[in-house]
């Protein structure tokens, strides 16, 4: 198998679904792993707002319960990224991307603020709509090629994957990876517990980088 990501260093076989570690996917995998570890180890800070022109300040209270939930979601998001970066099966990739989408919804939705909740809802709808082109694209790949394995697809001399399937996959990933838009608009990067929000941006970046490799390899 030769692909844009280089030759596989290692194959991890789960039945029909074979994970492959090329230099490209391995570097994405390590990035996701490092950030997952950071999320596990990091301690969220308490935010202080200084009253301008005086010595006064006030702290924003965040419940431990909420932070614990968001940390759980961030770790789950990291694990989903790990899967999405190395999986060698088109449909499995779409499932991992959907998992990234729903964990991002969870990270955003846990914040106790009407505005942020609204952002989470709007993002959730886009993430759910994004699964339609994702699954559609994967199914068209399977129907026109008779296989879902990226290794099989890349081994073919003539790429039989129609352009529309590639476009559908890309659009689906765009829908799932829209989380940073919502997080930024809802001012979540300034909200308490910011380290977990970084996971939204990172996971979106990772699935975008991976889908590029998937599209070119097929």
């Amino acid at each position: 198998m030769s692909s844009v990501g280089g030759t596989p260093l290692f194959l991890l076989e789960f039945g029909d679904i074979v994970m492959y570690f090329t230099p490209y996917t391995t570097s994405l995998f390590i990035l996701a792993l490092v950030f997952t570890c950071i999320v596990i180890l990091s301690r969220p800070e308490n935010q202080l707002d200084i009253i301008f022109g005086s010595d006064g300040y006030y702290t924003k209270e965040t419940e431990v319960e909420e932070l614990r939930f968001r940390r759980f979601m961030s770790i789950a998001c990291g694990l989903a990224c790990l899967g999405a970066t190395v999986t060698g099966d088109v449909f499995d990739f779409t499932l991992f991307v959907s998992l990234v989408g729903i964990t991002n919804v969870g990270i955003v939705a846990a914040v106790r603020s009407r505005h942020v909740q609204n952002a989470a809802f709007q993002y959730g709808i886009v993430a759910l709509a994004g699964t339609v082109p994702l699954f559609g694209g994967a199914a068209i790949v399977a129907a026109t090629n008779g296989t879902l394995s990226m290794i099989e697809l890349s081994a073919r001399t003539m790429s039989g994957v129609p352009l529309i399937a590639k476009a559908l996959l890309t659009l689906g990933v765009m829908g799932e990876g829209m989380a940073p838009f919502y997080a930024a608009k809802a001012e979540m990067f300034r909200a308490p517990g910011a380290p977990y929000v970084i996971m939204c941006s990172l996971s979106s970046l990772l699935i975008f980088l991976r889908v590029v490799e998937v599209i070119i390899t097929m």
């Binding site: 789960f14 039945g15 029909d16 679904i17 789950a76 899967g83 999986t87 099966d89 449909f91 499995d92 499932l95 991992f96 959907s98 998992l99 729903i102």
Partner: peptide, 11 residues
Amino acid sequence: RGLDTVVEPTI
């Protein structure tokens, strides 16, 4: 395709 089914209940 067991991995699919592992990811699905995780979702």
